[in-house]
């Protein structure tokens, strides 16, 4: 038994030596599982045709903030594809694994696709939820993950803030009050977007689920005929960015591969896959092809909050507005 497993091990090393399949680790956030599963196959085929080299791509998924933390703590990611640029900034700041100007390295702020936040309600919309103002009504239960750990939850929070701030005419106290009443209607704070999906769709908790647009469509696919998507009057343009973790890639000798991998995200083929998985493609042709899935929404951008670094420290750091609204 023991000898045979040793032999297998030795053999596999030998084979690895001959075959030299390049390996790439993509550390991503929660709802991208299905998209990257298909994209990786397409890229592997493309790479094989172009260079003759086989490539094996490993994926890791979890709450975006948590994933950033794992990379800082030593998870050997070659590329990161996270939910918001703030999380990649932290990797650049705390671990120096990539340069500060990483976001300028690829087109469109290094975000090959965009997404937004929509509402998911029960079939027939029994509570008549139409817009953010309905979420603070008594008796409405709202499901959203914890913004401290989840990237999607931070977009949710900021989208709600954008609405509240407009409604209050920019009055800070009134805005906070709105957000406070919204979170008082939240019965469960999961640590990641996927956890919240389970809570809402599988456990049947809550009337409204604040969700990534692609995750909302995924629920419709997985639990057909049980939910509906509601488009609020205003939402936020989420630009999930991608970057090569340069120091790690250098160490693994995968720089060229990692670069090509992320570059491939911008090709028409990959843009089409993104559209298919309900990410809004940057490519005009792909966007046109899947346009029936992407209704026009009035979107604010992170620039309204002064960029991610500012948004993070104002809202989500210790003592930020999120901590404040929970204080009694």
């Amino acid at each position: 038994m023991k000898t045979s497993s040793f032999t297998t091990l030795a053999l596999s090393f030998l084979l690895a030596g001959f075959n030299h399949a390049a390996e790439l680790l993509n550390v991503s956030y929660d709802p991208t599982r299905e998209f990257y599963a298909e994209f990786n196959e397409a890229f592997a085929a493309h790479w094989k045709a172009k260079t003759g080299e086989a490539v094996k791509i490993k994926q890791s998924h979890g709450g975006s903030g948590k994933q950033a933390r794992s990379v800082i703590d030593g998870l050997k990611a070659d590329v990161v594809t996270l939910a918001l640029s703030g999380d990649i900034d932290v990797i650049a700041d705390k671990a120096n694994l990539l340069p500060q100007d990483w976001q300028a390295k690829l087109p469109n702020n290094s975000s090959p696709y965009t997404s937004t936040i929509v509402f998911v309600v029960r079939k027939g919309n029994p509570k008549g939820v139409k817009d953010w103002s309905d979420l603070v009504k008594p008796g409405i239960k709202v499901i959203t993950p914890n913004p401290k750990t989840s990237g999607g939850a931070r977009w949710n929070y900021l989208a709600a803030w954008a609405y509240a701030s407009r409604k209050a005419g920019g009055d800070l106290a009134k805005t906070k009050e709105f957000i406070r009443s919204l979170y008082q209607n939240v019965p469960v704070l999961d640590t990641g977007a996927r956890g919240s999906t389970t809570t809402f769709a599988q456990r049947g908790i809550g009337d409204v689920f604040l969700s990534w647009e692609n995750e909302a469509h995924l629920i419709e696919k997985e639990f057909p005929g049980t939910t509906e998507i509601v488009i609020p009057s205003i939402s936020i343009l989420a630009e999930p960015p991608v970057a090569v973790v340069e120091k790690n890639a250098k160490k693994h000798g995968t720089e060229a591969l990692a670069k090509a991998y992320l570059g491939f995200l911008y090709t028409p083929e990959a843009q089409n896959i993104a559209g298919k998985h309900f990410y809004r493609p940057r490519d005009k042709a792909a966007l046109a092809k899947w346009s029936q899935n992407f209704p026009k929404i009035n979107l604010v951008t992170i620039a309204e909050f002064g960029g991610w670094a500012k948004a993070q420290s104002t809202h989500f750091a210790s003592g930020g507005t999120f901590d404040e609204i929970y204080r009694k």
Partner: peptide
């Protein structure tokens, strides 16, 4: 764990 996620290790 939340404190760790905020990179607030001392807390």
């Amino acid at each position: 764990v939340s404190k760790l996620e905020e990179f607030n290790v001392p807390a």
